Amino acid sequence: MTSIERVGVVGGGLMGSGIAEVNARAGKDVVVVESTAEAVEAAHQRLENSLKRAESRGKIDSAAAVLERIRVVDDLTALADRDIVIEAIVEDEQAKTDLFRRLDEIVTSPDAILASNTSSIPIMKLAVATKRPSHVLGVHFFNPVPVLKLVELVPSLMTDTDTTERARAFVQDDLGKTAIDCQDRAGFVVNALLIPFILSAIRMFESGFASAEDIDHGLVLGAAHPQGPLALADLIGLDTVKAVAESLYEEFKEPLYAAPPLLARMVEARLLGRKTGRGFYTY
C-alpha cells in the first residue's frame, strides 16, 4: 500500500488550518492553498497561533519546527505533486464541484487521492466532476481538528476499496484518529443525527419556549452533554449549520431537516456564531 507523505489542503480557514496542523504534527509535508494573498496571511497566522498554544500546553515540542513543514500559498498548481489533496472550502456544492474538476487536471499522480472534508454533500456529486472517481472519497474531520479524534470515511459507489483502505491507514496510523465508515448519504453519520437535534433546539428558542441559556443548561446538566446545542451551533458556524440542513433536506425531504426561519435570518444578518462574535451568544 503506497504511503501518503505529501499532503495538500485547499482552504485555510478553521477546518483547513486544523487539518494542515494535524498533518504537519504527524511529520507530513503540507501545502495549504488559499484564494488570495490576504487569506494566505490569515491562514498562516491562524496556524502559528494554534501551534504556539499547543507548544505552551506541552502538546508539541516546537511550534516553529511543525510550521516549517507547512507552506501556505495562493497557487492551486502547487498541489501537483501531492499524494492526497483534502478540500476544505465553503460548504457549497457548485464551488466544490468546480474545485474537484480543477484538481483532477492539476494533481499528476494517478494514485493520488482527492478527498473532501464536506460535512453533508454526497461524494458522488464531486467524484463525477473528475476522470478518477475511483480515487475520490470523503474524509470528514471534526472541529477542532487537533482535539477531536473522529474522522468519517465516505466512499462513493465508484471509490476503489484500495483508496478507502489507504485513506483509513493514513487517518488512523499516521494521524492517530479513529475512522468510522459511512454510506454516501447527505450528512453521513454524525450530522444526520446532530443537525436535526440542533434545529430542534433553534425551533424551541424561536418559539419562546425557553431561553438559549436554559436550553443549553438543560442538555449540559440534565443529559451530560459537554456543550449545549445552541452553543454548539455557534461553534460550528450558523452558515454551516444552515448549509448542512439544506443539503439534508434536499436529499431526504424530511421536515425535521428544514432550516427554521430564525436560522435563515441570522445567517442573512451575518450573525454566524463565534467566528463573527455573535450568534445565539455574544463572544
Rank of each mutant, 00 (worst) to 15 (best):
residue 114 L to D: 05
residue 132 R to Q: 02
residue 72 V to A: 11
residue 73 V to Q: 12
residue 42 A to Q: 15
residue 78 A to I: 03
residue 18 G to K: 02
residue 266 M to K: 05
residue 97 T to V: 15
residue 62 S to R: 06
residue 221 L to K: 13
residue 251 E to M: 14
residue 237 G to Y: 04
residue 271 L to I: 00
residue 226 P to R: 07
residue 96 K to N: 05
residue 202 I to N: 08
residue 101 R to C: 09
residue 191 N to H: 03
residue 150 L to N: 09
residue 40 V to H: 06
residue 42 A to S: 13
residue 34 E to N: 14
residue 123 I to E: 04
residue 37 A to V: 11
residue 29 D to C: 07
residue 209 F to G: 12
residue 96 K to L: 01
residue 1 M to W: 01
residue 48 E to Q: 13
residue 14 L to D: 01
residue 179 A to S: 14
residue 89 I to M: 01
residue 7 V to Y: 00
residue 157 L to Q: 14
residue 169 A to V: 15
residue 46 R to G: 10
residue 171 V to P: 04
residue 123 I to P: 07
residue 109 S to Q: 05
residue 127 A to M: 13
residue 238 L to C: 02
residue 182 C to F: 11
residue 171 V to G: 05
residue 23 N to M: 08
residue 15 M to Q: 07
residue 105 E to F: 06
residue 216 D to W: 07
residue 29 D to T: 00
residue 82 R to D: 00
residue 14 L to G: 00
residue 53 R to F: 06
residue 124 M to D: 13
residue 175 L to Q: 06
residue 80 A to S: 05
residue 85 V to I: 02
residue 260 P to Y: 02
residue 73 V to S: 15
residue 75 D to Y: 09
residue 126 L to C: 00
residue 193 L to A: 14
residue 180 I to L: 03
residue 129 A to Q: 10
residue 133 P to R: 03
residue 117 N to R: 02
residue 281 Y to K: 11
residue 209 F to D: 09
residue 198 I to H: 03
residue 15 M to N: 01
residue 248 L to T: 11
residue 73 V to R: 15
residue 145 V to L: 08
residue 19 I to H: 08
residue 239 D to S: 07
residue 138 G to Q: 10
residue 242 K to E: 05
residue 281 Y to F: 13
residue 67 L to H: 08
residue 115 A to F: 06
residue 257 Y to Q: 10
residue 262 L to E: 10
residue 156 S to D: 04
residue 254 E to C: 10
residue 101 R to I: 01
residue 32 V to G: 08
residue 179 A to L: 05
residue 98 D to Q: 13
residue 275 K to T: 10
residue 147 V to M: 11
residue 122 P to Q: 12
residue 78 A to W: 08
residue 248 L to Y: 08
residue 243 A to W: 10
residue 220 V to F: 07
residue 47 L to C: 02
residue 282 T to Y: 00
residue 6 R to H: 02
residue 113 I to P: 07
residue 54 A to H: 06
residue 248 L to N: 10
residue 204 M to V: 10
residue 283 Y to H: 09
residue 231 A to M: 04
residue 203 R to A: 15
residue 33 V to G: 09
residue 9 V to T: 05
residue 249 Y to W: 14
residue 254 E to L: 15
residue 126 L to M: 14
residue 112 A to I: 06
residue 200 S to I: 00
residue 264 A to C: 11
residue 214 D to Q: 14
residue 263 L to W: 00
residue 111 D to R: 03
residue 251 E to T: 15
residue 113 I to V: 08
residue 80 A to N: 05
residue 18 G to I: 02
residue 255 P to R: 10
residue 60 I to W: 05
residue 263 L to V: 06
residue 49 N to P: 01
residue 66 V to H: 00
residue 23 N to Q: 09
residue 184 D to W: 08
residue 7 V to E: 04
residue 62 S to L: 08
residue 145 V to T: 09
residue 282 T to A: 13
residue 80 A to I: 01
residue 178 T to P: 00
residue 152 E to V: 09
